[in-house]
Structures are given as C-alpha cells and as structure tokens.
Simulated scan of single mutants.
Amino acid sequence: MAHRTFAAIVAATTLGLAGIAAAAPAVAAPGNDAGNGRPSSYALTGDAAGSRFEGIGADERRGVFYVSEVTGGEIHRGTVGSSATEEWLPEGADGRFTARGITVDAAGNVYIAGGPNGLGTGRPDVWVYSPEGELLAALRMPADDVFVNDVAIGPDGAAYFTDSNDARIYRVADAGAGFTAAVWADASDVIDRAAGFNLGGIVLSTDRSAFVVAQGNVGKMWRFGFDGSVNEIVVRGADLVNADGLVRQGSTLTVVRNFSHALTTLRVTADGAGATLVADEATAADKVFTTAKTLHGRILFVESEFGPDAPTPPYQVTTNPF
C-alpha cells in the first residue's frame, strides 16, 4: 500500500466531507422511456468538417446537459425533455480549440477540461462558465506537459481535474477572490506513466472520502483519498483497458470502455477501496462511446465518432449504447 501527502488543502476539504450531497437516483434500463415523454436520444449539431464529441456534464436540478467537442472546442447544450440541442459556446471561444471532460456544480456553473488545448500554446487549460454562459475563469494549470482530461465536483464544492499525461489531479475553486487552480494530488511516485492516456475518468466515492479514477491505457483503477492516500483498486477478473468515463450510482460503478466497445459494471465499496466485477457487456460494434452521466434517472452516453474514419452525422447522445 503506497501513500502520498497531498497539498495542504486536503485538511480543509476533509472537514467538510459529511452531509454535502444527496444519494444518486436509481437508473432505468437504457432506452426504457416509453410513455414518459422523454427522447431516448439527443441530436448534436456538427460542422462541415465533421465533429467528434467526448465529454458530458449534467445539471440535475435544471434538467440540462452539456457536451464537449474535440476538434473545435465548442460546447453543446440540451434539455432532458427535447431531442434537439444547441451550440452553447462556439469554437474558439475564450481560446478554446478543443474540449474534453465537463461537469456542473450545485450552482449550475460549468467546468470544462481542455485536454491538450494549452500544451505548447499558452492557451487556457480549463474554463468555468455561469449557467447563463458568462465566462467566470480561463485558467492555466500550475504544471508542465498538461493534458486535462476529466473533471468531478468534490465534497467541498470545488472541481477536480485529472491529467492524462502525469499522475496529477488539479483543484479549481473560488475562495472569494476569483477562481484559482492548484495541484491537489501528485501521485507520480506511485502511478507509473505509460504510453497513451493515463488518468481519465473520475467520480466521488459513496461516502465522499475519496475519488475513484481510471487509468485506461493500462486497465487500472486508483483511489485518491482525502487523507492523502493513493492506492490501486484491484478488481479481480475485470478487463479495464480503455476505461474512460465513469458513472457511479450508489454502489454500482459503470465503466465506459471506449475502443473496447464495452460497458463494465462493478460493485464498489462505500469508501472506493474495493470493487467486484458484476458484468461486462458489449456496446454497439460500429460506435465508440466515451463518457456518460446520469440525468433524471437515466444514463446518457456520448457517441463520440472516434475512430479511423472521418466523422459523419448523425451525432448524438443516447440512452442505449447497445
């Protein structure tokens, strides 16, 4: 068991762990929407050159979701009751020419991970917007060789971003004088950097004591505790290669395994320290699903158009990845 001391902010965030979030809703079977007036898929607008989508963030209170696009960095927005979506933030807005993970905090603020947007360019790595689309922050991460991949809200209300190059997690928060970014965890002495995308999907454990983080290139999962510990989560019998987006509903963790064309379901302990394989199901062989989020009792999956061929419409978010 390996440990790493995090930034001093850990002590402060640990004090606020109890009683901050509601339990996750139960999720109906994918596509099981007959008679309730909600579409089973949502159309995303693309551009003439072709679009590749990746991240999704959900605002449970407002019934709104946001989807990021890789080749231009535009952000699309939809509502749970309509199959149509709109381009919410255009390509190139605020120096954003690619976008990856995306999430929403309790106030409805939208956090966007820029992937390699700032790598060698000096452009921002992450952005924060109000629900009305007002830019609240465009930030560089305080590290070199950064690929900001995915993001989750912590028990303190701050946003935590994974780095797919080195084993770092960044914390973005507004302490009253504007949003700032800090290295919250550096586990490079525990987690080996391998070729490809390293840290990716991130979710909070049920008891809110840790983050569960995927390292898809080597098929591993890691627990980043708010006590400063970093431990591998060993899941015997599970193939977690290409683990990308993570969705936790109570003790059930759905792992979206993009180019493996699979969903792997795990049963996870409350503290995120242990997990057991439940099922491994094949998704549609001709589609690549990257990330997913729950919204109003369903999981919404992003159909990315990743792959060797040029992306072609229709582009969509769907409740049925099979």
Rank of each mutant, 00 (worst) to 15 (best):
P313N: 05
T312H: 11
N258M: 03
E281I: 11
L135Y: 12
S260M: 11
T291R: 12
D192V: 13
N165V: 10
A262D: 07
S209T: 14
T45L: 14
R171Q: 01
E69I: 00
V67N: 01
R77M: 08
A24S: 14
L135R: 15
F179P: 06
D207G: 03
S209H: 06
H76Q: 14
I9Q: 12
I169T: 02
V218A: 03
V255M: 09
P116E: 12
I202M: 04
R52I: 13
A21S: 15
L199D: 02
G16P: 07
A23K: 10
G63P: 03
V104R: 06
I153R: 11
D33E: 11
A84F: 13
T283Q: 02
D239K: 12
A99F: 11
R298Q: 08
N320D: 15
E60Q: 15
G157W: 09
A181K: 01
F226L: 13
V255D: 00
A24C: 12
K287Q: 11
N242V: 00
Y66F: 14
Y42D: 02
L277H: 04
L240M: 02
I153Y: 10
P39V: 07
P90V: 11
W222R: 06
G274S: 12
G250A: 02
L204Y: 03
D174Q: 04
V128I: 06
H3M: 13
A28N: 06
V10N: 14
I233D: 01
R4E: 13
A282D: 08
Y42S: 09
V247R: 00
N231G: 13
A279Q: 13
I191R: 00
R223Q: 10
R123Q: 10
G176T: 05
G120A: 08
V234Y: 11
D150N: 10
T254S: 10
E134M: 12
D271H: 11
V278Y: 13
N258Q: 02
D207M: 10
A158C: 06
P321R: 03
G95Y: 05
N165E: 08
F289G: 00
D94A: 15
H296S: 15
S68H: 09
L199A: 01
T290R: 06
V255R: 05
P155H: 08
N198L: 09
P313V: 01
P131D: 03
S260V: 07
G297C: 08
G237E: 06
N117I: 02
V241E: 11
R236W: 03
V190H: 09
G297A: 06
G196D: 01
P131N: 06
S130V: 09
G228V: 03
V148F: 08
G216S: 04
A11Q: 15
E60P: 05
S164A: 04
